[in-house]
Each structure stands twice: as C-alpha cells, then as structure tokens.
Amino acid sequence: MNLVLHVLRRLANAFGLLLAVLVLNFCLIHAAPGDPAMVIAGEMGGASADVMAALRVKYGLDQSLVHQLFTYLGKVATGDFGYSYYFNEPVLGLIAQRIPATLYLVLSALLVSVLLGTLLGVISARKPNGLFSQTVTVMSLIGYAAPVFWTGLMLLLLFGSVWPILPVTGMTDVARPKAGFAYLLDVLQHLVLPATTLALVYIAQYSRLSRVNMIDALTADYVRTARAKGLPEIVVIGKHALRNTLIPIVTVAGLQFGQLFAGAVLVETVFSWPGMGRLVFDSILRRDYPTLLAVLFFSAVIVMAANILTDLLYRLVDPRIRSGAR
C-alpha cells in the first residue's frame, strides 16, 4: 500500500512538472529568432505578403503569445499536438513513426554501457593496481573525453571506408525483407555503430563508478565475514559486494537517461538514424514549432518514467530501502 501511495505521489509530481515543461518550452521556442511563416514560404519558393499573412492566420501565428499558449495547452489536454509546419501531417503520427527507432538506440546504448561498464569496473577492482585496471582507467578517460559526434565520425570513416563490414547509415537496407528474422538481423546490424557511439562515453563513466564502489565494498566488514565463512569468491562478489555497488549505478543510469536522448540527436544525425533526434534537428532548422514541442514533451515523459522506474528499482536492489519505506 505504501508503494502504491508513493507511486501516486510521484505521478502527481510528474504531472505538475510536465505542465511546467510545456509552458517553458513553448515560451522559449517562440522567443527564439525566426519566423515559421518565412521558412514555409521559402520551402514554397517565395511568397507575397498576402500569402505570408494567410500562412500566419492558418497556423495561428497572428495571435498573441498568451493566446497561442492557452490554445496550445487546451489542444494538448485533448491529445491534439497539431500539424507539422514542414511535413504537413499530424505531429502524433510523426512521433509514432520515429519514437521506436530512438528507443531502440537509447535502450541498447544504456544496456550495453551499464553491463559492460559495470563488468569492467568489477574486474578491475579486484586488482586495483594491476595492468588490466590501469588499462581500463586509461581507456575510460579517453572514452569520456571524446565527443559523441567525433566518435561517431571516426567509426563512420573506419567502417565505411577502411573496414566496410557494417552498415553506416539508416536503420534498414531497402533491398532486404521488412519482416521476420532477416529484418531483425538487418536492424541489429545497422544498430551496432550508433549504439556503440552513444554507449562509449557512458561505459567509461560506469566502469569508473563501479570500480570505486566495488573497491570500497570489498574492504567492508560484511565481505570479510562472507569470505571467512568460506563462500566462493564469485558468491562474495556477486551476491554481497555487487549488490551495494549497483545502487549508485542505478541512480546514475536513471539520471543520465535524459542525457542519452540529448546525445541521440547528434548520433542520429551522423548515422542518418530515423529517430526523434533527427526529427528534432530537422524541426529546429525549419522552425517547425508543433513538432519540436511534441518531441520535447514526449522526451520529458520518457525521462520522468525512467526516473520513477529507477526509484522502484531501488527497492529491488536494496532491501533496506523497502524497510525504510515501511
């Protein structure tokens, strides 16, 4: 019952925060320089003053900012996010087409970075001064310092020209079937490079974080007690030490979910990945306000859902949190 009440409180807080996000994004985007009517007219090859005025009336740009804001909030409350200025189709349809690709990319990068980074950190913590630990430390610093777009470009050049064994653009090959195992394999092959690019920075962070926390855990009294009982080393590390090490990793993973979405904008642009990040990039260039606002809104929803899920995972990782809640 306490868990249900906790989730309901979090959902209520998330609703208020989403409303604030809607208002703030609307004001910031409309305060930015640029006129969507001019961009639309430019795509049409130029237009007269009458056509420009008609475009502003059609999209409600002739109204005051306050009127536009309340009109927009009223439509969002009914699930209407408007029409795209550039694509000239419902924004929800665009989001529905693009969001699966971004979730594939972001969740794959998060899974790889958490698993591989934690594994490297745990192994290097057993011998902190060993060659493997020092190598992981150096590679982590390099991976953390390299910008995402630079890493993507280097992988693009490496596997596009020097060693062309992986597809470097798009999500699928147009010549392959669009269903069955062959389609799944095709998507996975296209996913390797963008997911690796996005994961490398976070692998470095999780390896450093898990290494430091595992070193502390291995010197704790409960670990020494477990070893004194004669438990196998894999049980001592996996059941006792690793469980406490996972708490800060789960925390950081939940907080960095939003950063993964931000990095996806660059990665999707480099690799022409048809996701929400690429849609954001195109919408910014074309002043497509409805599409940009909808993408930001759904990104906020996903990040908040990830934070609530992270809060619930605490209770699975650490029984002390469940006891404190009761």
Rank of each mutant, 00 (worst) to 15 (best):
N307C: 00
Q68M: 05
L184P: 10
V4S: 10
Y83P: 13
S140A: 09
A145Q: 13
I215Y: 13
Y144Q: 14
L293V: 01
G16D: 04
H240D: 13
L131K: 12
T71P: 04
L313Y: 06
V51T: 15
L293K: 02
Y222F: 14
V236M: 10
T197N: 07
L285M: 08
T196V: 07
S323W: 07
L110A: 07
V122G: 11
S140N: 09
G45H: 12
A226I: 04
L92H: 10
A125L: 13
A32Y: 03
V39S: 10
L231C: 09
R320V: 02
A101D: 12
Y183D: 12
M276D: 07
L296F: 02
L193F: 02
A54Q: 13
Q189L: 11
W163R: 14
T169W: 08
P33M: 00
L185G: 13
P100C: 03
P194F: 00
F26Y: 01
Q205V: 07
V122I: 13
V317L: 15
S133K: 06
L316V: 06
R208I: 08
Y83N: 10
F271I: 02
L28S: 04
L5N: 09
V7H: 11
V201G: 08
D216Y: 09
G82T: 04
F298G: 03
V162K: 13
N244T: 01
I29E: 04
K229V: 13
R315A: 10
A300F: 01
V138W: 15
M38C: 09
A96G: 12
L69I: 01
L18R: 02
V295D: 11
F298L: 06
G275F: 00
L115W: 15
V270D: 02
V106A: 05
R211G: 14
A253E: 09
A54K: 11
L200Y: 03
L266G: 02
Q189H: 11
Y85P: 07
L55M: 08
G263C: 00
